[in-house]
Nucleic acid binder design. Sequence first.
DNA 1: CACGCGTGGCC
DNA 2: TGGCCAAGCGT
Length: 363
Amino acid sequence: MVTPPLPPAKASADDLLDWYDRHRRALPWRALPGTTPDPYRVWMSEIMLQQTTVRAVKPYFEKFLTLFPTVSDLADAPTDAVMTAWAGLGYYSRARNLHACAKAVVERHGGVFPADESALRALPGIGEYTAAAIASIAFGLPAVVVDGNVERVIARVHAVEEPLPGAKPLIKRLTAAIAPAERPGDFAQAMMDLGATICTPKSPACGLCPWREPCTGRREGTADTFPRKTPKREGVPRRGAAFVALREDGAILLGTREPKGLLGGMAEVPGTVWSSDHDATGVDHGAPLPAAWKRSLGTVTHVFTHFPLELDVHVARIPAGTDAPAGLRWVATTALGGEALPSVMRKVVEHGLAALGVDARQR
DNA sequence: CACGCGTGGCC
DNA sequence: TGGCCAAGCGT
């Protein structure tokens, strides 16, 4: 007589927490087992980790904690200091909201983060995910934390056929059904660690997974095909020109972008608008000041989330003593590290200075 | 709800 | 190498 096959085991929080206790990673913002987490550090890390890898976040987290040890220090800091410290990390609205949130915590809550999911949710830059993450990790509240990792893990465990983002409500219910009453913060972090290290987007290490037995995707050999996603449209390429003006004393001309929108509030090299109309870019039309502009060889390319950008870089040497046009300023090339220059603009400066024959060691 | 919003690493 | 992806939020 043959024993009928048992129904698959249900994914259990205990199995996941056991795995977490054995593989917990030490991270700068993560409290040691048995110690109380610091909500300021938890919040700071959660904002920085939005759409950003742990590797990229680490040095910025350390820098911010050194520059702004408490939420009050951050609230009192000038905007320029916050934006400059954030430069290079991307998604700059996070930095503006970080600053606004620090001020709101001081004004609304006396400088103490509220131990309440809806009060957290009402703060700038804190959405559904981040409010739940802070509530569970910093305060031990039973919030249901669903980020991209959790979506992937749950979609595989249950072989969810509905594509994202439509499947979000279903995935949240499935997550809530597994979540334990105890250790909600550790459970949330365990789910995210599992997604980041084992249940990865490509080539998941199913053999090492604490949920390899109950996982439907694993059993059917289709784990790596989840989660399903609705295809998104591709962006139309845009082009423009940028102007690197090098004065004899070694300064270049910079401006500041509009406070909102793409690269809002960040520093930039002056240039034309970026347009998808291929005829829109004149040769040196849009130069910030009259000079013997010369188009440099090649272009600077940069790919944003929603469109690729190609910039022609024009260069000119400017006589000493020339004043900056309205809205622009001269900045020594040796002082560019103190500017809130996004990566695309660092590429432009590098490209322009190389075309002008400035030695890399002088930059 | 679909879209706008950076950057760096991966194969 | 180019396309995909990473602990989302605001509008």
